[in-house]
């Protein structure tokens, strides 16, 4: 009897510890500052050292008509990127290379010419999508924005991000929903300079691949233009040791 009691107590004690542990963690999280949350979020998004993706873009106009684009994307760190278009057929081979310090090169296969393009105009839409060049930047949110914790919703922190002084952006603020469990952002509202909500990005299919969290489907909606873009990650490889050679002008045409 006593033995049983002891075992029971022991059991309960262990059980209690087990149950308590996450509780304690939660308690710790509660004290996380907005900046810490954003830092963690940045860490999660930028975790892989390199990425090799195949992406499908579906552009959906207000009448529901769809247009497809397929491309491959190589990324190393968060400042080197090579994007190549695979479809549509007449744009196949168009490639562009982004290098540190806002240097961008574009290759036009029809003319076999490489042109450097200015990248300071970041509110230009990327390939007809609702993502602008700014949205595609792999810059850390915490470098660009000052976060403020607005509230906690079911499993989510809701952060408001306001641009830091001197940062050039097309947005007056972002409101970002960050998952409590893995700090992956699930939804970002973009406000324009008139402080009106004008674009919403939603991350769907958040999965763990090779130990990294990734959203395999994004959707960006432009509310005024009533236009939507779905970005689907068809294939993904992380940390495959991409060499710097892959990020050169010479490689643009190959």
């Amino acid at each position: 009897m006593q033995k049983i009691t002891l075992t029971t107590i022991l059991f309960f004690l262990v059980a209690f510890l087990f149950i308590c542990q996450p509780e304690e963690l939660n308690a710790e999280e509660l004290t996380l500052t907005a900046s810490q949350i954003l830092e963690k979020c940045d860490d999660v998004i930028n975790a892989p050292t390199d990425q090799d993706l195949r992406i499908k873009l579906i552009l959906i106009d207000k009448k529901g008509k769809e247009k497809m684009r397929e491309m491959s994307m190589l990324q190393k760190g968060n400042d080197k990127r090579m994007v190549k278009f695979l479809s549509p057929a007449d744009q196949r081979g168009i490639a562009f290379l982004s290098l540190p310090d806002d240097i961008m090169y574009l290759y036009l296969p029809a003319f076999k010419k490489i042109r450097r393009i200015a990248s300071h105009v970041k509110n230009t839409k990327f390939a007809g999508s609702d993502f602008t060049y700014e949205d595609m930047e792999a810059i850390r949110y915490s470098k660009k924005y000052i976060p403020e914790l607005l509230k906690k919703e079911e499993n989510h922190y809701v952060l408001q991000l306001k641009p830091r002084e001197g940062v050039k952006t097309d947005y007056s603020k972002l409101v970002m929903w960050v998952r409590m469990d893995n700090f992956y952002p699930t939804k970002i509202e973009h406000y324009n300079k008139g402080d009106k909500l004008y674009k919403i990005m939603i991350s769907k299919k958040i999965e763990k691949v090779n130990g990294y969290w990734i959203s395999k489907e994004y959707e960006m909606e432009d509310l005024k233009a009533e236009h939507k873009t779905r970005m689907m990650i068809l294939d993904v490889k992380f940390d495959s040791g991409l060499s710097d050679d892959k990020f050169t002008k010479r490689y643009l045409s190959r």
Binding site: Q91, L108, K113, T124, F126, A127, D130
Partner: peptide
Amino acid sequence: WVVNGHHTIPETRDGVANLWFFIEGNE
């Protein structure tokens, strides 16, 4: 003109599509 230095329509469809890429999505 910006790419090739003459203000003309490119000879091929691919040429048009390549240039088109620049302004895709521009309002």
